[in-house]
């Protein structure tokens, strides 16, 4: 399946775009997504940490991704 990934802050700079597309297997998890992204954008591994949000909620590594989910990479937040 093809998924779109939103990026913000430092990850937008790493991806060179606020939105990237990715091909994943149909039963892919957050863990698989992170692995695929890190292969394509090795600078992700230099971040202090980063989370993935699915449909506006923080997701866990084992959570499954579905084709129409809104997926976003959340680098370390620094609001306030």
């Amino acid at each position: 399946m093809k998924i779109n990934v939103l990026a913000f802050g430092v990850t937008k700079e790493i991806f060179g775009s606020g939105l990237v597309s990715l091909e994943l297997t149909n039963d892919a998890t957050i863990y698989n997504l992170k692995y695929a992204l890190e292969q394509q954008y090795p600078r992700l591994k230099q971040l202090a940490s980063y989370m993935v949000a699915v449909n506006n909620e923080y997701a866990l590594p084992g959570d499954t991704i579905h084709e129409r989910d809104e997926i976003a990479i959340i680098p370390p937040v620094s609001g306030g």
């Binding site: 430092v10 971040l47 923080y58 680098p75 937040v77 620094s78 609001g79 306030g80």
Partner: peptide, 28 residues
């Protein structure tokens, strides 16, 4: 509220210095 906002709310700030810009907390 302010302590939790700083930990969980997806907002990011970039500091502009004389020698360049840095995304706060992005790197260890």
């Amino acid at each position: 509220i302010i302590d939790t906002l700083k930990q969980t709310v997806p907002i990011w700030k970039k500091e502009a210095f004389e020698d360049g810009d840095v995304w706060v907390a992005a790197h260890p």
